[in-house]
Amino acid sequence: MSTVVGNRPALTWAVHLAVLFLVALWTLPTLGILVSSLRDKDQLAVSGWWTALTASERNIVARAAPPDEAEEEDGRWVLKGNVFEGSGGKAAAFGVSSREPSAFAVDETAELRDGATVTVAANGDYVVAYPQKPEGNRGQRIFVSSVEPPRFTTENYENVLFSEGLGKSFINTMTVTIPATVIPILIAAYAAYALAWMEFPGRALLLATIVGLLVVPLQMSLIPLLRLYNEVGIGKSFIGIWLAHTGFGLPLAIYLLRNYMAGLPREIIESAKVDGASDFEIFRKIILPLSFPALASFAIFQFLWTWNDLLVATVFLGNNEEQLVLTGRLRELLGSRGGNWEILTASAFVAIIVPILVFFAMQRYLVRGLLAGSVKGG
C-alpha cells in the first residue's frame, strides 16, 4: 500500500535488511573470535577462521634423525621416522631444498649428492637411505607441503585461564564493575526523582548543569582527581575507581532516569500524596517498580562501559599485578605475544563473554527505557 512517505512494504524490507546487516556486522567478528580461540595454533597462524571446517595446507620443515643412528637393511643404511611427529596430517609433496620445497610427489624418490635417497609417504613416514654407513649428528632437512584436517582444542583456554593470570584479572574486573554499576544507579535514582517530582529552588539550573556535564570529556578530570585521591589516601585503590566511575556515570544516569520518571502518569503520584504517602514511600513503592526499564537501560550502559574500560583503570589502579583488570591483561598479552593469536583470541573471548550475556539478558529493557526517556519528559 502506498502512503505519503512512500511504499510501505518497500520501507519495511529496507528496515529489515538494515537490521540484518547490523546484526551480521556485530555477530560475525564475535563468531570469528570464538572459532579462532578453539583452533589449533598452527592452523590458526596460516588460515582464517572461516576455513576452520575445511582441510588446511601448511608447509613444514622437518629434520630426519641424525645419520649416525642409521641401521643397516639389505646393504644400505636406513633412517625412518615421521615428518609430522605424531601431530597428524597428509603430505601432498616434499623436497630436500628450500628453493624447491615441493619438487617431488609423495612416494617418489629424491636423490641427494652423496648418493643417498629420501622418500616421503602420504602419511608423513620418511625413509632416508645411505649407500654406506654415514657419519654426523645433523639430520637431513625435509620440506613437506601437507594437507591437514581441521583440529580444535581447549588448550588455548587452559593456557589463558590457568597460566596467563587472566583468572585474577577477571575477578578484579568484577570487583570494579559491580559496585561501579550499582552505586551510580542508587544515587541517580534519588536525584532523578527529586528533579522530576519535587519542587525546590534552582531545579531547572541544576538540571541544565547535569545536561552540560554530559559533553565534558572525562579525560579533563583524571589527573586532578588522582591528585585529590592521593592526598586523602585512596589513590590506586578499588574505592577510588568506584568513586571515579560513579562520578563519570552520574550525569547520564540522572538524565535518563529523570526523563523516564517525569513521563510517568501524574495521577498516580497525586493519588499517593492524597492518601498521605511521603516522597520516600512514593519513590520506593511506586516510582522504582515503574522505572525498572530505565534502571536496566543505564545498568547495561554502565556495566559495558566499566567492563571494557582501560583508561580509568590504568589511572586509578595502575599496572599492579594484584589489581590488573582484564583490559590491562589483554594489553600486556598483545605487547608480549603479538604472534600468539590463539592466546589473544581466547583471552578476548573470555573478556567479552560476560558483557554479551548481560546484554542479551537485559536487552528488552534497554529499548523500552531509552525510547520512553527520549519522548517523555517535563
Rank of each mutant, 00 (worst) to 15 (best):
F360E: 02
H16R: 14
A192Y: 04
G6A: 02
F104A: 01
W50G: 06
L252S: 11
Y190Q: 11
G139R: 03
N156M: 04
R63Q: 15
E100F: 09
E332W: 02
I286T: 13
Y157H: 10
F292A: 13
P101F: 11
T327D: 04
V61H: 00
E135C: 01
A122S: 15
V215W: 11
A10M: 12
Q363Y: 12
F298G: 09
E270D: 15
Q43L: 15
L53H: 01
S347D: 02
G377H: 08
W50E: 15
T51H: 15
F84R: 10
M220R: 01
D74F: 14
F84C: 08
A194L: 12
V128K: 08
T30E: 00
L161C: 01
V23G: 06
F21N: 00
V274K: 03
W13M: 12
L326W: 07
R63I: 15
N230Q: 15
L295F: 15
R329S: 14
L38Q: 04
T153G: 08
F143G: 07
L53N: 06
L213P: 02
P355N: 11
E155G: 05
L330F: 04
A372M: 08
G335L: 13
G136Q: 12
G369T: 14
F316H: 05
V46C: 10
N320K: 11
S47V: 11
K80I: 01
Y126H: 09
W13I: 13
I33R: 00
T314Y: 06
V46S: 11
R58W: 03
W341N: 09
L166S: 00
T117R: 08
T175Q: 08
S271T: 14
A348I: 13
E69M: 05
T12N: 07
K41H: 10
L44F: 03
L38W: 04
M198S: 04
G88S: 05
A65V: 11
N7G: 01
K273H: 13
P29M: 05
V128E: 04
K273C: 00
I353T: 14
K168L: 13
I286R: 11
N159G: 10
V375P: 00
S291V: 07
W49T: 10
S374H: 05
F238A: 08
A103H: 01
G339F: 08
T51M: 12
S169C: 10
W242L: 07
S146E: 15
A70Q: 06
A361P: 01
P66C: 09
G247I: 10
G48V: 03
M362R: 00
S2H: 09
K168D: 12
K376T: 12
P217M: 07
W49F: 14
V120A: 12
R266N: 06
P179H: 08
I183L: 15
V144T: 12
A196M: 04
A294I: 03
L34T: 04
A122H: 05
V83H: 00
L206A: 15
P101Y: 10
A129G: 02
A262Q: 08
V61F: 01
D279P: 07
I343Y: 15
P217S: 06
V358N: 06
K80M: 09
P149W: 02
S56I: 13
A188F: 07
F359W: 06
R99L: 13
E85Y: 09
S2C: 00
R329Y: 03
D125M: 06
M220V: 11
T246R: 06
S297L: 10
A45M: 09
I142H: 08
L53T: 14
R258L: 01
V78Y: 07
W50R: 13
W50S: 14
L38G: 03
N308T: 03
L218P: 03
